[in-house]
Write a protein that binds this DNA or RNA. Structure first.
Lengths: 210, 210
DNA sequence: ATACTACAGTAACATATGTTACATTGGAAA
DNA sequence: TTTCCAATGTAACATATGTTACTGTAGTAT
């Protein structure tokens, strides 16, 4: 029995399902900053996150990108999920933010379990619910917040998912994820530092208040 | 038998399910510009759209609002759906854009059918899939497009769902839906008119090219 | 130590969008 | 017709964000 599976999902899935997952799933360990899914990929199995953090990106036709949200322990990728079912291409890119451990579940099992296990149905629907809410929160950020507020929110989100109030990123990397320019990020970070909200250092930023 | 149910869903649901829906669903006819769901509402039944168009809005803490997407014939409200299951509050507002006809389905039936009917599971998952894609398209618009491009896209979307290349709105109403100001909308509409893309008249706008 | 390079700071300017204020006009109501 | 008001047009200005160009600096490689 895969230990992380039992630890993380014993209150989510009934025992029979846990055993089935244990039998058919493939365990994978992936290093940080690794591209798991690219836009346009066809997906043949569904990832179940055991540990670590995954970043989900959206990209426009010019190659400009934007961070949509983070996936954490216990999450699954709803997009992948619906790609499996609908046999459509991925609309997002998934990149590991930290080292991750995950289970890959074959599509046909997924559908079988939808009919068989109540806890699986609940899990799948909850995943969609959570993902929809997260994308809508992203809409809120872009539509209603100014760039300095978005930047601070980004830093806090990152600190939360990595359980670390030091963010190890260059200003350029942050600029890519927020879809703005390095100069703008530097300018606003300096402003946040002057307001006493963060401390700036080369290659890392410390959140003063969480 | 409700005629629109058979017409719209005979290729989507198996016959037994159509009959069950026909028995337990409540038929409703709602006039245009009517608020169906408010943010914070608890939802006790799920709407199935038979005809007409519904607008879905997001709102921030200051009361500023933003149009997320339109629902058309054959759609259901995925948000409502997940509110039913998770027993959580609505995160969105739903307003009729035109007169609509819809069926209200009790939550408990919804869950029962998830176990019983394959076609129902497919429908629910497809709904989530479509809604996620639409919210992500909204993210694209806000993140990657300039206001004049967003405005033109808005007009085209509205023309598409209402099957009418005349948009009957004041500039102020458009400004609310795009979360900008009336003056900005007027300015950019005039620019689009000068480019030959639209024709401006009092209280309505005609799309020259679709 | 020296040179090099990625990263960060910042000024100066360009552009998009938001705001205020006021003028004009079409159509409804009296 | 006359009056009135919502809708629209537009100028002038404010602000946020994007861009270009240059500087300084920490850390690495030679």
């Amino acid at each position: 029995m895969i230990q992380e599976l039992k630890d993380n999902y014993k209150d989510v899935f009934e025992e029979g399902l846990i055993n089935e997952i244990n039998q058919v799933a493939t365990f994978k360990e992936i290093p940080e900053n690794f591209k798991i899914i690219e836009i346009g990929d066809y997906i043949k199995s569904m990832p179940l996150l055991l540990s670590g953090v995954i970043k989900i990106f959206r990209e426009d036709t010019n190659g400009d990108e934007l961070l949509l949200y983070f996936l954490e322990n216990g999450d699954t990728c709803a997009m992948t999920l619906s790609c499996c079912i609908g046999q459509s291409k991925s609309e997002i890119r998934a990149v590991t933010e930290t080292q991750v451990k995950l289970l890959m579940i074959p599509v046909q099992k997924m559908e079988e379990w939808m009919a068989k296990y109540n806890s699986w149905r609940t899990f799948v629907l909850n995943s969609y619910h959570n993902r929809l809410n997260e994308v809508m929160e992203t809409v809120d950020s872009i539509a209603f917040l100014k760039m300095d507020e978005r930047l601070l929110k980004y830093l806090k989100d990152k600190a939360r998912v990595t359980h670390n109030n030091s963010i190890h990123n260059t200003h350029q990397e942050i600029a890519y994820e927020l879809h703005t320019s390095r100069v703008v990020v530097s300018r606003l970070l300096k402003k946040l530092e002057n307001m006493g909200k963060i401390e700036l250092n080369r290659n890392h930023i410390r959140l003063v208040e969480l």
